[in-house]
């Protein structure tokens, strides 16, 4: 019998949409009973959202003032306390999950399976390596708990039509004081979130400047799309780091992705290959991005993008 515990990522008020995809991953485990735990200063709003997710048996809450900000060193001992008796402990492969889960695994004397893209069996999983150039099958010991992160782009969200019970959980643990929150500067919140947006417009080095990148923002706003970027565009300071898509940025799966002035390096492409439709606009007909594009247009972006924005307005 599989008992799965999912750690609910949230921002203090809303449940992260990635959790609905973690539940979809958990449902791939045969006969799984799925619980979600919300660690927060005040958990009720987030817990109510989690309780609606189809497939969730029970939502647990752990409320402590120390949980106001998600500090892995503070959360991990509490997760360990709640995890007793579970066969699987999952979180999304977001910066939240990547920070927290390896700490949880090591406290339990376990290893982590990173970025599950498919569950082949309760202890057998598929995950990408080498920027997605290969997919490896990993097997974990049958008698040990599985601690893992979920590659959310590989899963479709479950529905939210249920009403699971919500219970307070006991997670007494000594919490360290060696790690303290100072501040967070939240990026662009006016546009759809990259990881859940149905449409994404992404720009690369070819935009040439911060001002040039406005072309991307304008097209994105016309489409109601989220904004993505390549590493080169971020390194050059044209756009904020949290927009970087790829192996070492965000892995996304919108219905529509439009890549503009992006060459299509493997490190970028691994972040978009689950998109429904990939559109590429590049002046170089040999650019590798065209190998993966569903629709390609060769030409100068400084001409094409304003024209496209006008045509779609």
């Amino acid at each position: 019998m599989a008992k799965v515990l999912i750690i609910a990522e949230h921002d203090g008020s809303a449940l992260n949409p990635a959790i609905a995809k973690c539940v979809a991953c958990a449902k791939q485990i045969d006969g799984a009973e799925i619980d979600v735990v919300v660690l927060a200063a005040s958990a009720s709003g987030v817990a109510a959202e989690a309780a609606k997710l189809d497939g969730v048996r029970r939502v647990l809450t752990v409320e402590r003032p120390e949980n106001e900000h998600s500090l892995a060193a503070v959360l991990a001992p509490q997760v360990v306390a709640v995890a007793a008796g579970y066969t699987h402990v999952l979180a999304p492969s977001t910066t939240y999950g990547k920070d927290l889960m390896p700490r949880v695994a090591a406290l339990l004397g376990l290893n982590q399976v990173s970025d599950i893209m498919n569950v082949d069996g309760p202890h057998t999983f598929k995950r990408p390596i080498y920027a997605g150039s290969a997919v490896v099958t990993v097997e974990t010991p049958a008698d040990r708990t599985v601690v893992a992160t979920v590659r959310i782009a590989s899963y479709q969200s479950v529905g939210s039509t249920s009403a699971a019970p919500i219970e307070a959980a006991d997670a007494s643990a000594d919490l360290p004081s060696h790690t303290r929150f100072v501040e967070v500067k939240v990026g662009d919140t006016d546009r759809p979130d990259l990881q859940t947006a149905a449409r994404v417009v992404a720009g690369g080095r070819a935009l040439g400047s911060k001002e040039g990148f406005d072309l991307i923002f304008k097209l994105a706003d016309t489409l109601g799309a989220g904004v993505g970027s390549s590493r080169a565009a971020v390194d050059a300071g044209y756009v904020a780091p949290e927009t970087q898509v790829g192996q070492t940025g965000k892995i996304i799966a919108p219905d529509l992705y439009i890549g503009i002035g992006i060459s299509g390096a493997i490190q970028h492409m691994t972040g978009i290959k689950d998109a429904g439709t990939i559109v590429a606009i590049n002046k170089d007909a040999e650019a590798p991005i065209f190998e993966a594009a569903d629709i390609g247009l060769v030409g100068d972006l400084f001409q094409i993008v304003p024209e496209l924005t006008a045509a779609l307005s």
Partner: peptide, 12 residues
């Protein structure tokens, strides 16, 4: 560098 932007923490 976190998904939502930039977070600053202090550690001993």
């Amino acid at each position: 560098e976190i998904d939502s932007g930039l977070e600053t923490i202090e550690v001993d």
